[in-house]
């Protein structure tokens, strides 16, 4: 199944506009700024340009939404409640740790 990306002609016009009008950036340029934008590292002027692109570009808006959802899913995936519970401890591990503490190698 090929996803629908909208009309080629419209995208051609959009590309033309984004490349040539003042304060506009292309989607590719938007992509290069994305991480700095998310981490709050963009100076105010650039941030405004970025926000403007988001306001007029449906594709980048949707991309950013999916990107953020991906980050959230990743974090949740590792959030294993079982790992936080106290676990049974192999006694030989305790012994190994105790032995290593013996002072012949200290200081």
């Amino acid at each position: 199944m090929t996803p629908s990306y909208g009309s080629r002609a419209l995208r051609f016009m959009k590309g033309l506009m984004l490349r040539n009008l003042p304060l506009m950036i292309t989607c590719r340029e938007f992509e290069d700024f994305l991480l700095d934008y998310l981490e709050g590292n963009l100076p105010r002027g650039q941030r405004r340009i970025f926000d403007l692109h988001l306001a007029i570009c449906r594709e980048c808006r949707d991309y950013l939404a999916a990107y953020k959802e991906t980050m959230a899913l990743g974090k949740r995936a590792f959030d294993d409640p079982a790992a936080v519970l106290p676990q049974t401890v192999p006694e030989d591990l305790i012994t190994a740790v105790m032995e290593a503490r013996h002072p012949d190698s200290e200081k």
């Binding site: 590309g15 449906r58 980048c60 808006r61 991309y63 959802e69």
Partner: peptide, 19 residues
């Protein structure tokens, strides 16, 4: 990696309002 066309426009299917 993300997809772009020859106009540097992003290719991205619409994002559903509700997951």
């Amino acid at each position: 990696l993300p997809d772009f066309d020859e106009n540097a426009c992003r290719l991205e299917a619409p994002w559903p309002k509700r997951l």
